[in-house]
Design a binder for these strands. Structure first.
Lengths: 204, 204
DNA sequence: GTCTATAAAATGATAGAC
DNA sequence: GTCTATCATTTTATAGAC
């Protein structure tokens, strides 16, 4: 009975997928909280509730584990981007993405951009699935940036590259953390303030 | 002959100061390049050209050493702020400080803002000299921000706190690193672009 | 104060039983 | 695949001679 056999295998695979997703949830949270260098595999295992050796049966190294987490995050971001109302203007689409990212960041599940100072950067560059998702997202954003420049809602003189990097950087702006630590503003207010300074600056 | 004795002591102290300054130069550079967590004491000692044990005769721990380096950086920043031409408008003073910081950052001697994710953050908060310098700088910047809001060159509706944190954050913006890595822009161009997006946003 | 040598702790990764 | 126990390495910090 091949169907039963297939079904059983599929079920096992679903269990596996489920477990690995739980692991990535933890990694995502810890990466957001402490960053790659300060996150330890002991910590991850403890948070998931399994032994460290078991963790290594799922992911062969800390780098691969983190890359998998970042890749899933990229996929989620792309999903959000593609589910935006078509009626939105290109500029509003860009703002919506940044808004979602800052909200997620404040919620504690958006890791900081792997800066050039982190060990994880090269691991990500060597991880094709991540590069692939990053390229896809960059393409979408690039299209919107171009369109926004064409209709005059974004500066035409600013290089697209600068706008793109700025959007990525503001999505995990440490200013959000400092404002939250200050305690004077609600999460919603923080998001609005950051969106404003990001797109309109501080002079207006 | 007390004068000779005093002179000798003073000379020794000058030598000590000189050596410790050389150490802090190295720490500053390494903090900018790798950050606190990835910088090792072996590395610092090797770069300075002394044994690690000697390093610990000067600074009792990695935290204290890094805090001393960051404190000196704060002092330098205050010096730059105080030596700005009085004729400059408050807004131009703020821009000048950010400009100087980004230039220094691109030059490789401006550490990233100790984010909430780094171990160094609490060490700095527990280091009175650093807090003292930080307060002084914050006071100066706060005065300029208020003045710029009063004369209408900075948004009056934006909380001063938000402007202050944004200025601190943009002074070591990772966008600068990414643009530099891209290789399409000179350092001068990068500085101009970041100043523009920081103060005027991306819509104008 | 500078050195060599080493302690002490943390941490990425693995062995081997079940 | 999960566990316990352990290895190997890195790294902060110190001991002790000179």
């Amino acid at each position: 009975m091949p169907s039963a056999h297939t079904k059983k295998l599929s079920f096992k695979q679903q269990q596996l997928q489920f477990r690995e997703n739980a692991i990535l949830d933890t990694v995502n949270k810890l990466l957001a909280k402490k960053g790659f260098d300060l996150m330890t595999m002991d910590e991850v295992a403890a948070d998931v509730g399994i032994a460290k050796a078991s963790l290594y049966k799922h992911f062969e190294s800390k780098e691969v584990l983190s890359a998998a987490s970042m890749t899933r995050l990229m996929e989620q971001t792309i999903t959000v981007a593609l589910s935006l109302p078509q009626a939105l203007s290109p500029l509003d689409k860009l703002k919506s993405i940044v808004r979602w990212a800052i909200q997620t960041h404040l919620g504690g599940t958006m890791p900081l951009l792997p800066s050039t100072r982190s060990t994880i950067q090269q691991a990500l560059l060597a991880h094709p699935p991540y590069i692939d998702k990053l390229s896809t997202l960059t393409e979408h954003l690039g299209t919107w940036i171009q369109a926004a420049q064409d209709n005059g809602t974004l500066s035409k003189t600013l290089p697209g590259e600068v706008i793109l990097y700025t959007i990525f950087a503001r999505s995990c702006d440490p200013v959000a953390d400092f404002l939250k630590m200050g305690g004077a503003f609600s999460d919603t207010e923080i998001v609005d303030l950051l969106i404003q300074t990001c797109f309109d600056g501080m002079t207006g």
